[in-house]
């Protein structure tokens, strides 16, 4: 998807946190990326390196923690694991599954110096 915009959002968050909390060197940026969010980790890594140049996180390691996808199956009336938005319910095979988890794209934490 729009990995460049995401990288810019990350830079903004990191710079804001540095300003408000008084640190100026970030060693690691830890993200939580849901499996259903359609973020391409490789392209995000590429954009991250480019966008973070000249920031307090220049050269920082990007750690991407993946969050498994889940959805609400209307047939089974329960939460089931799904790997993609178009996947059927693994229990009953129905496509009546509404994504409920694994859509997040968040900055979780920073390792600072």
């Amino acid at each position: 998807m729009h990995e460049m915009s995401l990288a810019e959002g990350i830079r903004q968050i990191v710079e804001d946190a540095g300003r408000s909390q008084g640190f100026n060197k970030v060693k690691t940026v830890v993200l939580e990326i849901g499996q259903l969010s359609s973020v391409e980790p490789d392209s995000l890594r590429f954009c991250f390196d480019v966008v973070m140049q000249d920031s307090i996180a220049a050269g920082a390691v990007l750690q991407i923690d993946s969050v498994p996808g889940s959805g609400w199956c209307m047939q089974c009336a329960e939460t089931v694991p799904v790997a993609a938005l178009y996947d059927p319910c693994p229990k009953c095979g129905s496509y009546q599954v509404q994504a409920t988890g694994g859509t997040e794209m968040r900055v979780k934490e920073l390792e600072i110096e």
């Binding site: 915009s5 995401l6 959002g9 990350i10 903004q12 968050i13 946190a17 909390q21 008084g22 640190f23 993200l31 997040e104 794209m105 968040r106 900055v107 979780k108 934490e109 920073l110 390792e111 600072i112």
Partner: peptide
């Protein structure tokens, strides 16, 4: 409150990447 910056190596952020939008 977050622990003092001197010991804290990890800073919790928990912020949506598109929060600004």
């Amino acid at each position: 409150h977050a622990p003092g910056m001197s010991q804290a190596q990890m800073v919790r952020i928990e912020q949506n990447i598109l929060a600004k939008n």
